[in-house]
Amino acid sequence: MMTKTKEFVAESVQNMRPSGIRKFFDLAANMEGVVSLGVGEPDFVTSWSVREAAILSLEKGYTSYTANAGLLELRNEIADYMENRFHVKYDPKEEIIVTVGASQAIDIAMRAIINPGDEIIVVEPCFVSYVPLVELAGGKAVTIETKPEHDFKLQPDQLKQAITPKTKALLICSPNNPTGTQLTKEDLQGICDIVIEHDLLVIADEIYAELAYDIQHTSIASIEGMQERTILINGFSKGFAMTGWRLGFCCAPKEISHACLKIHQYAMMCASTPAQYAALEALQSGMDDVVQMTKDYRRRRNYIVSSLNEIGLDCHIPGGAFYAFPSIKSTGLSSEEFAEKLLMEQKVAVVPGNVFGKGGEGHIRCSYASSMEQLQEAIKRIKNFIEK
């Protein structure tokens, strides 16, 4: 009988750290009376018309596989959406793949472009899956720590210094998880000039594109010279409140899109058929709900940012997504100590900033995808915690 089963696990997986976000979710789940600012998903329910479209698809018996790349009708609608909303034109037959969430889109993009040893520049603080996905694909993640004094925006000089002969791509997320930082067209232009000069690819995670509060989102693919070197990731989870439907999409130049589709064919076959019909309805009739949700998030953002600053936790104004990323350095605690003590003593769940990379140390992520009542209670408890 075999007793050393661990030896059969791949080294790359053995060395991989579990998600730091899940650790705090699991702790909070076993406690009563917790106010959670940790969940990275909308607190809104998917629009009724969207749910109804999925139900109708089931009643009609649409339960078979779709094309590997997704329903052509949905890809046509995604192409129109990207052109009308973000001024980027894609061929729905050759350049768009419907995926199982934006997470799968990022995964297949990595595996489609990375050769062993290729370097991928990852801008931190960043979503917890980016670095592991680079490493699982055989690449090396080269991280850049953005600074709070720059509102966590990537500076062109930082990018220049990180590029080596092995650099293949830059992975960037705007609006950003966890900081909420939104890059303007001017910010992106400075980055794009360097990307073009060094002949790099960009993997652009734009899943929070609809959740931009002060200025409209600019897609990096819309910058002149960038569409042919950008793999654009988006989806329905955040802007359309469809996290559990697990539906995203990947837009890329034909050759790269075909490579991504090969992996998608073998790994996933296709995304859920009812979910695709739901997404089709979301694009056709759901934008009014998106606008209303964005207004509510903006109101909550204004409240939580001003409140955090008032109680002594410095916090920049996030331009998008639904996260505040205040500094807790004034308390003398590390990010993890602060989050653990806050949960145990005041029953408020936040995510320590260090799980998003070294640049996140000294901060916590607070999701404001919660009701105003919950946000007010959380601020009250955080204030009590700081005063003690």
Results as ranks from 00 to 15, higher is better:
residue 365 R to W: 02
residue 115 N to H: 14
residue 287 M to L: 15
residue 172 I to C: 04
residue 133 L to S: 08
residue 250 C to P: 00
residue 386 I to G: 04
residue 361 E to T: 00
residue 180 G to R: 08
residue 168 K to W: 11
residue 23 K to W: 05
residue 195 V to D: 09
residue 249 F to W: 14
residue 110 M to W: 02
residue 17 R to P: 14
residue 356 F to T: 00
residue 317 I to S: 04
residue 218 T to A: 09
residue 241 A to M: 10
residue 5 T to Y: 15
residue 323 Y to A: 12
residue 100 V to Q: 07
residue 63 T to H: 07
residue 38 G to K: 06
residue 86 F to C: 04
residue 280 L to A: 07
residue 154 L to C: 03
residue 105 A to L: 01
residue 7 E to I: 03
residue 162 A to I: 10
residue 139 G to R: 08
residue 283 L to M: 05
residue 107 D to T: 10
residue 206 E to G: 03
residue 357 G to F: 01
residue 109 A to R: 01
residue 384 N to Q: 15
residue 71 L to G: 01
residue 360 G to E: 12
residue 318 P to E: 02
residue 197 E to R: 12
residue 81 Y to G: 00
residue 239 G to H: 05
residue 312 G to C: 11
residue 162 A to T: 06
residue 106 I to L: 12
residue 293 M to V: 00
residue 190 G to V: 11
residue 270 C to H: 12
residue 24 F to V: 04
residue 370 S to E: 15
residue 287 M to H: 14
residue 70 G to E: 12
residue 335 S to L: 08
residue 141 A to T: 03
residue 210 E to L: 06
residue 291 V to N: 00
residue 92 P to I: 06
residue 254 K to I: 09
residue 128 V to T: 12
residue 24 F to C: 05
residue 287 M to Y: 15
residue 340 E to A: 11
residue 51 R to I: 13
residue 181 T to N: 07
residue 355 V to K: 03
residue 86 F to E: 07
residue 222 S to T: 11
residue 160 K to Y: 00
residue 284 Q to M: 14
residue 41 E to K: 13
residue 60 K to R: 15
residue 171 L to K: 06
residue 184 T to D: 03
residue 22 R to N: 15
residue 264 H to C: 14
residue 274 P to T: 02
residue 56 L to A: 12
residue 17 R to H: 09
residue 382 I to E: 06
residue 379 I to K: 10
residue 231 I to N: 03
residue 188 L to T: 05
residue 372 M to A: 13
residue 82 M to H: 07
residue 42 P to K: 04
residue 216 Q to C: 06
residue 27 L to F: 11
residue 214 D to E: 08
residue 152 F to Q: 05
residue 195 V to R: 00
residue 81 Y to E: 12
residue 329 K to T: 13
residue 355 V to Q: 03
residue 202 V to K: 01
residue 219 S to H: 10
residue 356 F to I: 02
residue 280 L to E: 05
residue 96 I to D: 01
residue 71 L to C: 06
residue 101 G to R: 02
residue 366 C to Y: 05
residue 232 L to C: 12
residue 162 A to V: 04
residue 32 E to S: 15
residue 71 L to N: 01
residue 168 K to S: 03
residue 319 G to T: 07
residue 272 S to F: 10
residue 298 R to K: 15
residue 23 K to Y: 15
residue 348 V to S: 08
residue 64 S to R: 15
residue 170 L to S: 01
residue 67 A to I: 08
residue 310 E to Y: 00
residue 100 V to A: 10
residue 156 P to Y: 14
residue 127 F to E: 07
residue 80 D to R: 13
residue 183 L to K: 04
residue 175 P to L: 13
residue 28 A to H: 04
residue 81 Y to L: 08
residue 104 Q to N: 14
residue 297 Y to E: 09
residue 112 A to E: 04
residue 44 F to A: 14
residue 162 A to W: 06
residue 161 Q to Y: 07
residue 163 I to K: 04
residue 263 I to G: 13
residue 14 Q to C: 11
residue 323 Y to L: 13
residue 28 A to N: 09
residue 234 N to C: 11
residue 146 T to D: 06
residue 323 Y to S: 09
residue 375 L to K: 09
residue 182 Q to W: 01
residue 115 N to R: 10
residue 51 R to D: 13
residue 359 G to F: 10
residue 168 K to H: 05
residue 319 G to K: 05
residue 29 A to S: 12
residue 301 R to C: 02
residue 18 P to M: 11
residue 226 M to S: 08
residue 91 D to H: 08
residue 95 E to Y: 02
residue 265 Q to K: 14
residue 383 K to Y: 02
residue 116 P to S: 05
residue 138 G to N: 04
residue 191 I to C: 06
residue 274 P to C: 06
residue 386 I to M: 07
